[in-house]
Simulated assay, not measured.
Amino acid sequence: MRTIAFIFARGGSKGVPGKNIKPLAGKPLIAHSIDVARACPGIETVIVSTDDEAIADVARRHGAEVPFLRPAELATDSAPEWLAWRHAIAWVQQDRGPFDVFLSLPATSPFRSVADVRACLDMLASDPQADVVITVREAERSPWFNMVKLDAAGYASLVIEPQGEVVRRQDVPEVFDMTTVAYAARPGFVLRADRLMAGKVRSVLVPAERALDIDTPRDFALAEMIAKLQASAHPS
């Protein structure tokens, strides 16, 4: 099966300027995703989709391909990344022929492991009915128990009202947070569907310490702390 890894990294990050190439633990953030993809058995190549020449240069220096620049209209704040996925798949199919597995490894998730990625690929391969595999972590809050919404007057109520009295977290269905560790999908599904959850979705559970998604300066500061702790625990 042909498996191609993609990393989608646009240049206009406002939360953390220059985020995708900002140094973390001695190398640009995007390099962490590239390195994991290159270390994962069965991946044919790693392609970075970006609109930014600086990101493209860093990606190439760390072993990824950047065979095209993403069109500007697919790199705005409001452009759904789903459309960038479609663009990348269509480009590869036209230039290099059909492939079997589309794998997205966001640059903002630097602590994933090769095992996490391999688990997603194995899950997709083991279930012919699945369209996509996502990664999840155990949720810290539950919409049945301690997540609330506000009405027009500002009064709070549970997001989902349980049937009967709920006094323990164990009394409600188990819920999970989606992560950005990895997405493994069939290319045809991405091209025909309009959103991730439109198909048959399987999931792989990853621990919270490998599921950090960097979106804000606080997230980046936390990532730096985690990286330092990991380095001290495993000195070279």
Rank of each mutant, 00 (worst) to 15 (best):
110 P>F: 05
185 A>Q: 14
59 A>K: 06
51 D>R: 08
20 N>V: 11
75 A>N: 12
225 M>S: 12
90 A>F: 09
177 D>N: 12
84 A>C: 07
111 F>N: 01
157 S>F: 04
185 A>H: 02
199 G>L: 09
222 L>M: 07
50 T>H: 02
87 H>V: 00
230 Q>H: 13
97 G>I: 13
2 R>E: 03
222 L>W: 15
130 A>K: 02
205 L>W: 12
188 G>E: 12
147 M>Q: 13
79 A>F: 13
159 V>Y: 00
228 K>E: 10
150 L>E: 08
53 E>P: 11
190 V>D: 05
161 E>K: 11
155 Y>Q: 15
85 W>Q: 02
192 R>V: 02
198 A>R: 08
69 L>T: 00
169 R>T: 07
51 D>L: 09
118 R>T: 10
177 D>R: 06
67 P>R: 08
105 L>I: 12
194 D>V: 06
65 E>Y: 05
79 A>N: 12
158 L>Y: 04
21 I>T: 15
52 D>V: 11
191 L>R: 13
17 P>G: 03
91 W>F: 13
53 E>G: 07
90 A>L: 03
175 V>R: 00
187 P>S: 07
158 L>Q: 11
87 H>F: 04
25 A>C: 13
65 E>L: 10
127 D>R: 11
116 D>F: 02
159 V>S: 00
181 V>D: 10
88 A>W: 02
154 G>T: 11
155 Y>K: 11
187 P>I: 06
55 I>H: 08
218 R>Q: 08
180 T>L: 15
37 A>N: 06
30 I>F: 13
162 P>G: 13
166 V>Q: 10
227 A>M: 09
50 T>S: 09
198 A>D: 14
58 V>S: 11
46 V>G: 02
193 A>E: 13
15 G>L: 13
175 V>M: 12
186 R>F: 02
16 V>W: 09
29 L>N: 09
138 E>Q: 13
236 S>K: 08
64 A>N: 05
191 L>M: 08
120 C>L: 13
25 A>W: 08
28 P>S: 01
180 T>C: 15
77 D>P: 05
216 T>E: 10
45 T>I: 14
7 I>R: 10
203 S>Q: 01
225 M>W: 02
96 R>Y: 06
38 R>N: 15
54 A>W: 11
233 A>H: 11
13 S>F: 07
198 A>E: 09
22 K>R: 14
217 P>M: 01
90 A>Y: 06
110 P>Y: 10
47 I>H: 12
29 L>H: 04
124 L>G: 05
42 G>M: 09
227 A>K: 12
124 L>C: 01
160 I>K: 06
64 A>K: 02
73 E>W: 15
174 E>Q: 01
